[in-house]
Simulated scan of single mutants.
Amino acid sequence: MRDEALLGPWIRRFLLEHVIAERNLARNTQQGYRDGLCQLLPFVAKRVGKSIDRLNVVDLSAELIRAFLTDIEVTRRCSIATRNQRLAAVRAFAGFVGEHSPVHIEWSGQIRSIPFKKTDQAVVPYLEKAEIDALLAAPDRRTEQGRRDYALLLFLYNTVRERQRRSASRWRTWT
């Protein structure tokens, strides 16, 4: 029971077994989860007055995690997207612990119920004909890399244009 209560072995298993071996998550995701937990642990240890290696799973309360998320937004001036990434790591960790330890199912549920914040969707502007022409003229087509870049840009432009054409034709059939 004592081993199940300590946080360290769970984090080790999560990062090595679950994130890498079981889920085979992308390297950036692995590092993001690791970095998020590396930021969270000192915060929690300071708040509960324990050293990091003495933290228990239940020391990561939903209240402390909310305080951590607020802290990274306010003190560190992180964006909502970064806050949500840190929360994703913590929620994934809580899900892993809850899945492997029936003792921690209620704790896992409390952590996983912390909501993500909504972010504004960036408006993706369209390019005018002159801007597209300038973009396509930029690569030096006398070089191999320039021909490659030109081909990729032309492919992307034609793909978007085709998608818009299909979308417009579907709209006409519905009206």
Results as ranks from 00 to 15, higher is better:
R112D: 00
L37Q: 06
R34S: 08
C78P: 12
E4W: 09
A151M: 08
T159C: 14
D59S: 02
L135Y: 11
R47S: 10
W107L: 04
R172M: 15
R12Y: 13
N158G: 09
L87C: 00
R147P: 07
V160Q: 14
I65M: 00
R163H: 13
Y33F: 04
R112N: 05
P139Q: 01
R112H: 05
T82G: 04
D71K: 07
D71N: 14
L16M: 14
R2W: 11
V160H: 15
A62T: 06
I105P: 10
L127Y: 09
K117V: 06
F96D: 05
V19I: 02
I132Q: 03
G49N: 05
A138K: 12
L40G: 00
V90K: 02
Q110F: 00
A94I: 04
T159G: 12
R91V: 01
Q121C: 11
S167W: 13
S51Y: 11
A94N: 03
L136K: 10
D149G: 03
E4I: 01
G146W: 00
K129W: 08
W107E: 02
P115C: 01
I114Y: 07
D53C: 02
D120K: 09
S61L: 03
G49T: 05
D133V: 05
A137Y: 05
R34G: 08
D53T: 01
R83N: 05
R47A: 09
I105Q: 15
Q85K: 09
R170P: 07
T143V: 02
A26D: 07
T82E: 00
P102I: 01
F116E: 12
A151K: 09
A21W: 13
R166M: 15
G32F: 00
V103M: 12
Y126D: 12
A5R: 13
I11C: 03
R76Q: 01
K118D: 10
R161S: 10
C78F: 10
E106C: 01
Q39I: 06
P115I: 04
